[in-house]
Design a protein around this nucleic acid. Structure first.
Lengths: 243, 243
DNA sequence: ACCTGAACACCGTTCAAGT
DNA sequence: ACCTGAACACCGTTCAAGT
């Protein structure tokens, strides 16, 4: 049960196989490369499966080689989180800043959501890893990002107190919605665009009449609308508290 | 680094020490007892430290003995989550149902918050463990609880569609707020009632002028007010969408 | 019936040694 | 400079054996 998919995989040692030696990629090692590989690994196999030894094997190297570039497994996970934050930075910085703060928050929120859905098995790390400082709230968990966020609002006329307040409510909103959605999505769904969530054994619901009756509505996947509705509401709430 | 607090602890074998034999408690084993001990263990040492072997030792037994009562470690963690859900059930069912649905949601929300703050190192499990079904949203993650919630609202005149909607927004709200607060709190704070969150090395902020300036407001612990404000807003939002 | 010893297949991590 | 072999101190889990 601890290794459903380990699969031993004999790999005959001598023969280099068809044409080029393809078993270990062996690009020259490098911290950034290791982290990228870790991201891909988690995307494919989940974070429980990520192991120094397995990651090494994937890079064509023994696990111990990784310690030249990273102090340990925890540090690697922190780097993975950081990598997602950088990805978000690239995704949002290419676009425009938005003509209003409302638009700015809308764009940023949707960028974060897309990131979460692109890496549903990594997002829980972004959400739950203990941040460097407790006021660095997930999912915008880097000094650079908080600075960026506060600057963005200031550019649209927010004063200090309102910026901080907006940072807090915005973070909480994103965390709740996206953690829920990403864990729902990482439940090995075949088609991520499905609008029906899998139901458990029909038997078990027999003792819960209300669940049985509301099974239809409950299993309806409505994350996108929920997100948009709650986001609009959040923005309205900020509007009101500012005036 | 993997064992800061393992401490070998020799324990001379023969001598039973002062008076009664106190090293292993040795109450007769039992699933409920094991789970209670696991809850206490995580409260004290964090979930990373929880190990079948260590938990066994704490119960005066070898790790393998636990497998008589639980199929494995994952199952144990699920039981821990379930135990918290039961604790919540006991806490809320003793009180009254509330004279209005607004009051009902208020009471329930505060009960969940108290649970999260009582077990800040366990709450992330409640938040992040993959639920049995994806529409079973944390932190009210049991069939019994969802049934209870929907029934509670129905008793106050909610129709099916509105109940489901309220269930969703309420869950998202609780998850976001309480996951943030519990992880902030489990950062080994000496005094949990402190209204100042710890700051990172003052040096590092030098490149982020806005953070440096807003350090005061940002490190202010305002979780309680945030929670209450957002809760009131959530309730108002439900009021409006229902009419 | 309930627990344990011994074993297995893994972990993360260190360090002296190889190239 | 960069990687590895061997080793250490752990894991979770199984199972035949003890009481």
């Amino acid at each position: 049960m601890t290794d459903d998919d380990t699969e031993e995989q004999p790999i005959q040692p001598g023969s280099s196989g068809p044409g080029l030696s393809e078993r270990p990629p062996r690009r020259p090692l490098d911290q950034a490369l290791i982290v990228r590989e870790a991201v891909d690994f988690i995307d494919e196999n989940g974070r429980e499966q990520l192991t120094m030894r397995r990651l090494g094997a994937r890079l064509g190297v023994e696990a111990m080689a990784l310690y030249r570039y990273l102090p340990g497994r925890e540090a690697l996970l922190d780097c993975v989180v950081e990598a997602l934050m950088d990805e978000l930075y690239d995704a949002t910085m290419t676009g425009e800043y938005g003509s209003s703060w409302q638009e700015y928050l809308q764009q940023l929120a949707h960028s974060v959501r897309e990131l979460a859905l692109a890496h549903p098995r990594i997002f829980p790390l972004v959400a739950s890893r203990p941040p460097a400082a407790p006021w660095l709230r997930p999912p915008l968990r880097s000094l650079r990002w908080v600075e960026e966020f506060l600057t963005g609002l200031a550019r649209h006329g927010f004063n200090d107190a309102d910026s901080v307040l907006a940072y807090r409510t915005f973070s909480t909103f994103l965390l709740g919605h996206l953690l829920l959605e990403s864990t729902a999505m990482s439940g090995e769904s075949i088609s991520p665009e499905d609008d029906e969530l899998p139901t458990p054994d029909h038997q078990d619901l027999s003792e819960y009449p209300r669940l049985l009756r509301l099974e239809g509505p409950l299993t309806q996947n409505a994350f996108a609308e929920e997100f948009d509705d709650a986001l609009e509401d959040l923005i309205r709430r900020i509007e009101i508290s500012r005036s």
